[in-house]
Amino acid sequence: MKKLLPIMLLLAFLSPISMLAQGPKVLVVTAHPDDETGFSVTMFKITHELKGTVDMAVMTDGGGGFADSQLGAMYYGLNLTDSVVARTHLPMLRKQEILNAGKIMGVRNIYFMEQPDDWYTTDPTPYISGKNWEIPYVERRMDRLLADRAYDFIITMLPHAGQHGHHKTAVLMALRAVQRFKGANKPIIIAGSPQSATSKPVEFSMLEGFPETKIKPNSPVFTLNRAFKFKENDKVSYKIVADWVIAEYKSQGAIQENGIHKTDMETYRYFDVNDSKGIKDVQKLFDDLAKSGFAAPSK
């Protein structure tokens, strides 16, 4: 079984930024390498401007991401649109891609849970039930991370009905880990989603059948503006950082073409499993992000 293999690939970026980190400690929980692109500017600003720490927990081995790999096949010299070739090579290729992307964002550690990236479905049942994923193993790993790393915040994707079943399951694993946590300082868990300036926010209150995904009623939506322009004549925005991150995922295609560069805002919701008192801590985090770096108001 996979759990007998050395399945955690741990990369510590021991840069001056991470060694002197005194800002917020954050764990980002996703299903696949590249899912974090929806939070990439928040992650970059936390590590580079707030001097915080960001780790990642990635649930799958990434072996299923070959539907849009035509250009990636040319780049890597491998027929990545063939399922057999892709499932042989993509897990290591995508690990290297996320390690490269993580370095840009200032990520300290990446923990790979190595669950199968089998096929596309919006149904989380085969995974959260333990049929397709080794849920007890992932639970033990998540519990150890939360106990040992003392995170202030956990960021997940927003598990709306149209999301991949892997995405929904990754969110459930994070939420349930928070619910099981018995320490004195329980991390606050929030759900992020990208949004363009011309689109409406995704309507979401709870994933049907999973009450732990409920968003706390009347809690605010927290926003980070990627498209904030700075430099002379408003030539530059933080969307450049997102482009740096996306560019590392050469095995993929759809995220570049269809979504991430078009993202103007990263929006975050507050799960109901959190204590209401934590809202002020999340608000402070996003206020600090809004005032930090090049987004800081001129004096």
Results as ranks from 00 to 15, higher is better:
Met1Ala: 11
Lys2Ala: 08
Leu4Ser: 09
Leu5Tyr: 12
Ala12Val: 04
Leu14His: 13
Leu14Gly: 08
Ser15Met: 05
Pro16Leu: 12
Ser18Val: 15
Ser18Ala: 09
Pro24Lys: 06
Val26Asn: 02
Leu27Ser: 06
Val28His: 12
Thr30Ala: 08
His32Arg: 02
Gly38Tyr: 01
Ser40Val: 07
Thr42Glu: 07
Ile46Glu: 02
Thr47Glu: 03
Glu49Ser: 11
Val54His: 06
Val54Ile: 14
Val54Asn: 01
Met59Ala: 13
Met59Lys: 06
Met59Cys: 13
Gly62Ser: 08
Gly62Asn: 02
Ser69Asn: 05
Gln70Asn: 10
Gly72Pro: 03
Tyr76Ile: 00
Ser83Cys: 07
Ser83Leu: 02
Thr88Leu: 11
His89Ser: 05
Pro91Arg: 03
Leu93Ala: 11
Gln96Gly: 05
Asn109Met: 08
Tyr111Leu: 07
Phe112Arg: 05
Asp117Gln: 05
Asp118Trp: 11
Thr125Gln: 09
Ser129Arg: 06
Pro136Phe: 02
Val138Leu: 12
Asp143Met: 03
Asp143Thr: 07
Asp143Ala: 13
Leu146Lys: 06
Leu146Asp: 00
Arg149Gly: 02
Arg149Met: 13
Arg149Tyr: 10
Asp152Lys: 10
Ile154Tyr: 00
Thr156His: 00
Met157His: 11
Leu158Trp: 00
Pro159Val: 02
Gly162Arg: 10
Gln163Gly: 02
Leu172His: 01
Ala174Cys: 01
Leu175Glu: 00
Arg176Phe: 02
Arg176Cys: 00
Ala177Glu: 01
Val178Lys: 08
Val178Thr: 14
Phe181Thr: 01
Phe181Ser: 00
Gly183Gln: 12
Asn185Gln: 15
Lys186Met: 02
Ile189His: 04
Ile190Val: 15
Gly192Ile: 03
Pro194Phe: 01
Gln195Ser: 08
Gln195Trp: 10
Val202Met: 13
Ser205Glu: 11
Ser205Thr: 15
Gly209Phe: 06
Phe210Arg: 01
Phe210Gly: 01
Lys216Glu: 07
Lys216His: 15
Pro220Leu: 04
Val221Leu: 09
Val221Ser: 14
Asn225Phe: 10
Arg226Pro: 00
Phe228Tyr: 15
Lys229Ser: 10
Lys231Ser: 12
Asn233Gln: 11
Asn233Lys: 10
Val236Asp: 05
Val236Glu: 14
Ser237Ile: 07
Ser237Ala: 10
Tyr238Pro: 06
Tyr238Cys: 11
Ile240Met: 10
Trp244Leu: 15
Ile246Lys: 12
Ala247Gln: 14
Ala247Pro: 01
Ile255Gln: 08
Ile255Ala: 03
Gln256Thr: 14
His261Leu: 10
His261Ile: 10
His261Gln: 14
Lys262Cys: 01
Asp264Cys: 07
Asp264Lys: 10
Met265Asp: 08
Glu266Phe: 02
Thr267Tyr: 05
Tyr270Thr: 09
Asp275Asn: 12
Ser276Thr: 14
Lys277His: 09
Lys277Thr: 14
Lys280Phe: 05
Lys284His: 07
Leu285Pro: 06
Ala290Lys: 14
Lys291Ala: 13
Ser292Thr: 09
Gly293Arg: 11
Gly293Cys: 11
Ala295Arg: 15
Lys299Gln: 13
